[in-house]
Simulated scan of single mutants.
Amino acid sequence: MRVIIDCDPGNGIAGANVDDGLALALAFAAPQISLEMITTVAGNTPSEVGYAVACDLVRRLEKSLPVWRGASRALLEPPAPWRERLDHGVDRHGLHKLWDDVQAPQPCPGSAPMAPYAMGELICNNPGEITLVATGPLTNVALALQLYPQMIGAVKRIVIMGGAFHVPGYLKDTNFGIDPEAAHAVLTSGAPITLVPMDVTTQTQMVHADLDRLTQYKSVLGSYLEQTMRPWIDYSMRTRNLPGCWIHDALTIAWLLDPSLTTGIDDFVDVALEGVARGMTCRYGRDNLRLDVGVSAPQGAPVHILQTVDNQRLLSLIEHHIQRCA
Rank of each mutant, 00 (worst) to 15 (best):
L98P: 08
S64W: 02
E77S: 05
H88I: 06
A54H: 04
P78I: 05
L86C: 07
G94Q: 11
L76S: 15
A71F: 04
G89Q: 14
A104K: 07
P78C: 04
Q103I: 11
P113N: 06
S64R: 13
S72L: 03
L98S: 03
L95Q: 04
D87T: 08
L57W: 04
D56A: 12
V67Y: 00
S64L: 04
H88N: 13
D87S: 09
A54F: 02
V58W: 04
Q103H: 11
P81R: 11
L98R: 07
P113R: 03
S64K: 07
H96Q: 13
V53M: 02
A74V: 07
H96V: 07
Q106H: 10
R92K: 11
A80R: 11
P79A: 10
V90A: 04
L65A: 03
G94S: 14
V58Y: 02
P79D: 02
W82V: 00
V90G: 01
C55Y: 02
D101T: 14
D100L: 04
A52N: 00
P66S: 13
P79N: 00
R83Q: 15
G89L: 09
G94M: 14
C108G: 11
R59D: 15
A80N: 08
D56Y: 03
R73F: 07
Y51N: 10
G94C: 10
Q103W: 10
M114Y: 04
G50M: 00
V102E: 00
R85P: 05
H96W: 08
